[in-house]
Design a protein around this nucleic acid. Structure first.
Lengths: 193, 193
DNA sequence: GACCAGCCGGAATCTTGCTTCCGCTTGCGA
DNA sequence: TCGCAAGCGGAAGCAAGATTCCGGCTGGTC
């Protein structure tokens, strides 16, 4: 997925381990933030650090792989939303669902950040795709008269970026679950008046 | 300010150095993020690392001192806003001004974060004060009928937290200056309908 | 069932950055 | 002007964490 996977089929155990590593990384980073050690990820996956490095040349690459997975997921979700009949409801539901999914996730923001500047071609492509799809969705909502006319896909990105920060509860902001308020207010800000 | 300053008057050169360190820290952290090294801060201040540690027992303490300064500043600004005749305009102007001030500042979010959980008594007190003052300001705006009735000082904190993230341009989000859009939308979200 | 390329574990290594230490310098009161 | 407590610089000490290395294991093929 990241470096070479189409070349040789990968031995059965290797494929299994790769998956375990990815899963463990998602979990550990979500719980302890992106600064969690590789050692910790390895322990959680039940493998040695060496195994991680066999699959991902560097910590950054591992994070990049997570980012790609995440983006893929987002694109899929957004595409579904585009084909709903009521674009505004679909849009709103999409945001709530996406946020809910990452409740208390300490890493999403940083992972997404990596993806942006990491220069991973795959991540770039997915970004472009996400940008386009969400643009379409928002365009439909605007046409419907429910979303403010000047809203763009880029705005959405910016707002989601803030959401990620807010969701890393504990680190930046105090008080539990303020992100629901965040989303409420932001969504109202995107509504047509 | 942080540890002991009321005790002995501090020698003239020491006071001068302390100020230089604080100023350099603000600058360096803003430019390179909170992960910039102490070495770098020292070089920028034109002193040795040892000198920093004479004034601030730890990097965390140095950051804490910056946070306190920042909070003090915010409280003062907000107090001014409270005494304006038009609360909504004052509120809006306050947000824009605060944001403008930290254009491209990579450290504000993290510094503010430190202040929250750092447990610094002085920072806690200032937070409480800020919370109260902004609550007053917002209450006036709500009474005026210009701000949504359910808005709270805590909401403001959450939204500013997101803003901080958005402003760390380069790290998390791509595209230059999207924070103006962020603020525009958020402010509209806070408006009464 | 024997072979071997590919894979594994995890100790050792390298890097980076915070913090401490200590001999030298300097403001400033007598 | 003298004496010295307070302050200074920056090399050395340490800790944490990423990455490398290599001897030993194992799917999967002949």
């Amino acid at each position: 997925m990241t470096t070479e996977s189409q070349d040789r089929p990968l031995r059965a155990d290797a494929r299994r381990n790769r998956a375990k590593v990815l899963e463990a990384a998602r979990l550990v980073f979500a719980r302890h933030g992106i600064d969690a050690g590789m050692e910790e990820v390895a322990r959680h996956a039940g493998v040695g650090v060496g195994t991680i490095y066999r699959h991902f040349p560097t910590k950054e690459a591992l994070i990049g792989a997570l980012a790609v997975e995440h983006l893929r997921h987002l694109v899929a979700r957004t595409q579904e939303a585009v084909s709903a009949e009521d674009p505004w409801s679909a849009f709103e539901a999409l945001l709530w669902a996406a946020a809910e999914e990452h409740e208390g996730d300490l890493a999403m923001t940083e992972i997404a950040a990596q993806a942006f500047q990491g220069g991973l071609p795959e991540a770039d492509a997915l970004h472009a795709q996400l940008h386009e799809v969400s643009g379409t969705l928002m365009g439909r909502a605007i046409a419907q008269g429910t979303m403010r006319a000047d809203a763009t896909a880029q705005d959405l990105g910016v707002l989601m970026c803030g959401l990620g920060q807010v969701q890393s509860v504990g680190r930046p902001c105090p008080a539990p679950m303020p992100w629901r308020r965040y989303l409420t207010i932001v969504i109202d800000g995107l509504r047509a008046r």
